[in-house]
Design a protein around this nucleic acid. Structure first.
Length: 892
RNA sequence: GGGCGGAUAGCUCAGUCGGGAGAGCGCAGCCCUUACAAGGCUGAGGUCGCAGGUUCGAUCCCUGCUCCGCCCACCA
């Protein structure tokens, strides 16, 4: 790595605040910069929100990561987008609050500690509940903050002083308040139903927490007395309490109502045959066994026919005492054993391979066992209706709109939410039972004795589903149920940014609780972004080994590069496929910016900000107009949550307009002894445009923009940091200037093309004979001749009466015609082939246009301007055709 | 079974009034030109999944089909 010779900083520049070395290396080194600036920003309190500020509030609540969590690429995306919004709004003068926090993550956290205990040769049972919970808290205090530090590395400008944890006293009070109120309103109830049980986690799961996986299994055709039925779960046979057929199935009508004696593995069973519409006559033999205790569908059939619920599998997934000789066997071992036994008894008619979906625990992937047990539920329908209405009425806007339908579909078919969990880590249910009089008490305060009989009370052992407290997040973090200034100022929050995977788990539930308890939607906008996958479209995960670790990316490419990459990719609907190459590209972009800044700084040493003496040149006005266009695009992009559009606009502008054209254009002025006033004007434009672009880019790339911004000489008093500077305002685009400048760019490009295609050695001096199309263009070319010549690397000869010499390559620009004499250099045969190819293309296009224009329908129906354009295009092509023919003639 | 999304350059993807197809990467050629080789210049490469329809005109709107992916649902 080479080091630049030290350059003395411009005299007017205030000493860069926390900046280290004065010289800028030719490569941007993020490590030098990021931590230093983050510390400064935080120390100066720039992230802090003020509930009493007068400016318009803008608030985002962060989806709380699990305390056990480590920053993965999904967090990085989610939080980068939030930070972009918050930084943008902050710079735009809003009173911003980005409310951070973490989630206690019931099962996930409990599993982590259980694993630790196992490694220590002990268990939570050995510890006891109280000691276990203490242990979790201890762990939380020590290592629960990992993700917070990682979010800081990402540049997240949250108000950390307000960080909340779902099990904080305040939030726990909110949880209790909500549960008690729901109980008082009759929206919470306790009931005996079939639930999804995870035998490994030993807890009930909500329907959402069950994932479905395709697995290969076998379909067993079993003889049930005179009938044969098909099942994938023969082990539940011992819990069968009926046989069911479809009511209209004529094949079995005569059995309905009868009680059959079924020879089985444990002697004979007597079983009723019932008719139920839930049976699909087309599946298997059209007969099913009914196991109300271990199948949700069977449970329903059982209720309809008053069947006995006969549990044969216990809460650990083992066969229980009712299973006779199979008692104690794991359910899958029992399946094998029973099948074997039935085979010996000749009860298995046949088996078929069968691929089906099984429910598995979303945490540990263990096959879920449906079991009947007593759990707590929240009645959802009354809560869902206002939440549907709020979106219908546009009080909350879901972006992109494609998720709206999904939201409605789920809300409209919502089922009651099982909220109790058989865990130790979480909010314990505020429910007490009196064994003396059998009463149940739900209370805001801890109870010790029965309010009815004064007898001793026993608190329910269960805790609430983790998502119960998350559902209150937008108002519990702001202080509810207290009436706080925070709530008053920041609720409803402005925008929620999250992935679609937790639309039901979280977003929908926040909508419901927010409306119910606050009387208003929790957020005005919901922006739902895609999920990041690898190149093969696989979900990233540590176990697959395909995960891109954002921490490693930040180490290697810098945080700004990662953030910009994520913003640039954010548009996509459902999936984002991410590759390191992509990040590398944006790392290069950061480096490009860095070097552009170095160039500017190296060339403004003698610049003194004062009233400009020279009027801006065409190029100055052009870049300023391009900047205006970019500002408009960025603002439009951000407003519409089109982060990729916004990022793309800046990328395009900075690299291709500012660096490729304007910087190059400025060089002749800066290097050669130009008029000092013109030179100062150029310097002023270079600086002004760069400074504005930095502010525009800051929400996306906070670190590098701050680092450069601090080094720029700025007139007058300025804020101490770019992050509290103003976001660029919209300004007028000068289309006339852009139209004037365009042809100049074209001209340079044309000459370069000729040079490249004719393989003119770089050392060789070229003369470009330019024939301007009008006097105005001639004047323009004359004024810009020096720059044009330098960029095109050719001597420009402007001649209104130029005649294209023979044996010449040809190019056309809007500014006129360019002839470049190339005698003795051109490979004539190759040139002829090239011209012939070109001619063929032109003629094809010409034929198409001629046909189109000949059609009466087109002339009559198409808008006049379209017809005119097509005619102009045809004229161009005709002229081009003539020139090409002419040129070919010369070559022959 | 219901619903949703995707199919555009070799790869990953933009393309929001229907009016001449774009980016990044990759590839080819030339260049260490005093901001940057993590760079510059130039170039090649596409029947916009298939078939119909609407329209003067369709990558875009409608219908059908094929192939991927996802979500929801009590077919054992």
């Amino acid at each position: 790595m080479t080091t630049m010779p030290e350059k003395s900083p411009p005299a007017t520049r205030p000493a860069p605040q926390p900046t280290g070395e004065p010289a800028l290396s030719d490569r941007y080194d993020p490590r030098q910069v990021e931590e230093r600036w983050y510390r400064t920003w935080e120390a100066r309190g720039y992230f802090r929100a003020d509930p009493f500020a007068k400016s318009k509030p803008y608030c985002i609540v962060m989806p709380p990561p699990n305390v056990t969590g480590s920053l993965h690429i999904g967090h990085a995306l989610d939080n980068t987008l939030q930070d972009i919004l918050i930084r943008w709004k902050r710079m735009d003068g809003f009173n911003t609050l980005w409310q951070p926090g973490t989630d206690h993550a019931g099962i996930a956290t409990q599993v982590v500690i259980e694993r630790q205990l196992a490694a220590e040769g002990t268990s939570k049972e050995a510890l006891g509940r109280e000691a276990f919970v203490r242990r979790v808290w201890q762990w939380k205090e020590q290592s629960g903050g990992t993700i917070v530090h990682q979010l800081k590395r990402l540049g997240a400008s949250c108000d950390w002083e307000r960080a909340r944890f779902t099990m904080d006293p305040g939030l726990s009070a909110a949880v209790r308040e909500v549960f008690v109120r729901l109980w008082e309103e009759g929206l919470v109830y306790r009931g005996d139903y079939i639930v999804n049980w995870c035998p490994r986690c030993r807890t009930v799961l909500s329907d959402l927490e069950v994932e479905h996986e395709e697995r290969d299994g076998e379909l067993y055709y079993i003889k049930y007395g005179p009938l044969t039925l098909a099942t994938v779960r023969p082990e539940t046979k011992l819990g069968d309490t009926a046989i069911a057929v479809h009511p209209k199935d004529k094949r079995y009508a005569r059995y309905v109502g009868q009680t059959l004696t079924i020879p089985s593995v444990e002697g004979s069973l007597d079983m009723r045959v019932v008719a139920d519409a839930g049976v699909d006559p087309k599946f298997g033999t059209g007969v099913i066994k009914v196991t109300p205790a271990h199948d949700p569908a069977d449970f329903e059939i059982g209720r309809r026919h008053g069947l006995e619920v006969r549990q044969v599998i216990d809460f650990e997934g083992k066969m229980n005492a009712r299973a006779g000789k199979y008692a104690g066997l794991d359910r899958f071992d029992a399946r094998r054993q029973i099948v074997e036994d039935m085979r010996e008894l000749g009860l298995i008619e046949k088996t078929e391979p069968y691929r089906h979906r099984v429910g598995v625990c979303y945490r540990c992937k263990t096959v879920v066992e449906p079991l009947v047990s007593k759990q707590w539920y929240v009645r959802m329908k009354p809560l869902a209706e206002p939440a549907i209405k709020a979106v219908r009425e546009g009080r909350t806007r879901i972006v992109p709109r494609l998720w709206v339908k999904t939201y409605y579909a789920w809300m409209e078919n919502i089922r009651d939410w099982c909220v109790s969990r058989q865990l130790w880590w979480g909010h314990r249910l505020p429910v007490w039972y009196c064994d003396a009089d059998g009463s149940t008490h739900v209370s805001r305060e801890d109870l010790t004795e029965c309010p009815q009989c004064g007898g001793p009370l026993r608190q329910d052992d269960d805790v609430l589903d983790t998502w119960f407290s998350s559902a209150l997040w937008p108002f519990s973090t702001l202080g509810w149920p207290q009436e706080t200034p925070e709530l008053k100022t920041f609720y409803p929050t402005s925008c929620l940014v999250t992935g679609f995977d937790i639309l039901f788990f979280w977003v929908a539930r926040m909508m419901m609780t927010g409306l119910h308890f606050m009387g208003e939607v929790p957020f005005r906008d919901v922006y739902i972004h895609a999920l990041i996958r690898d190149l093969e479209g696989q979900k990233m995960s540590k176990s697959r080994g395909n995960a891109i670790d954002p921490l490693e990316v930040m180490d290697e490419y810098g945080t700004d590069a990662l953030r910009f990459t994520l913003a640039a990719l954010a548009a996509q609907g459902r999936d984002i496929r991410m590759t390191p190459e992509r990040i590398e590209g944006y790392r290069n972009f950061a480096n490009k910016l860095w070097n552009a800044a170095r160039f500017v700084l190296a060339n403004v040493g003698d610049y003194r900000p004062r009233k400009p003496k020279a009027a801006p040149a065409l190029a100055d006005r052009w870049i300023v107009s391009r900047l205006a266009r970019t500002i408009a695009e960025v603002r439009r992009g951000l407003r519409a949550y089109r982060f990729n559009d916004a990022a793309g606009a800046i990328y395009q502008f900075l690299w291709h307009d500012y660096c490729d054209w304007y910087l190059e254009w400025s060089k002749p002025t800066l290097y050669r002894g130009a008029d000092p006033a013109v030179r100062a004007r150029t310097q002023a434009t270079l600086l002004e445009v760069l400074e504005t672009t930095l502010r525009l880019l800051h929400p996306f790339m906070p670190f590098i923009t701050e680092e450069i911004w601090q080094r720029l000489p700025k007139p007058g008093r300025q804020p101490d940091s770019i992050m509290i500077a103003r976001f660029p305002r919209r300004r007028a685009v000068d289309t006339a200037v852009e139209a004037e400048f365009g042809p100049l760019i074209d001209l340079v490009a044309k000459v370069r093309t000729i040079r490249s295609e004719m393989q003119v050695p770089p050392g060789r001096e070229l003369t470009a004979i330019v024939k301007p199309s009008s006097e105005a263009v001639e004047g323009l070319l004359g004024r810009e001749a020096a720059v044009l010549g330098a960029l095109a690397r050719a001597k420009l000869s402007i001649d209104r009466h130029a005649v294209r010499p023979p044996q010449a390559a040809l190019a056309v620009s809007d500014a006129g015609e360019v002839y470049v004499p190339l005698e003795g250099i051109v490979d004539l045969a190759a040139e002829r082939r090239r011209l012939e190819r070109e001619l063929a293309k032109v003629e094809e296009e010409l034929a198409r246009l001629t046909a189109k224009l000949a059609r009466a329908e087109f002339r009559e129906r198409a808008p006049a301007e379209v017809v005119a354009r097509e005619e102009a295009r045809r004229a161009d092509q005709l002229a081009l055709q003539a020139k090409l023919r002419d040129a070919l003639e010369h070559l022959r």
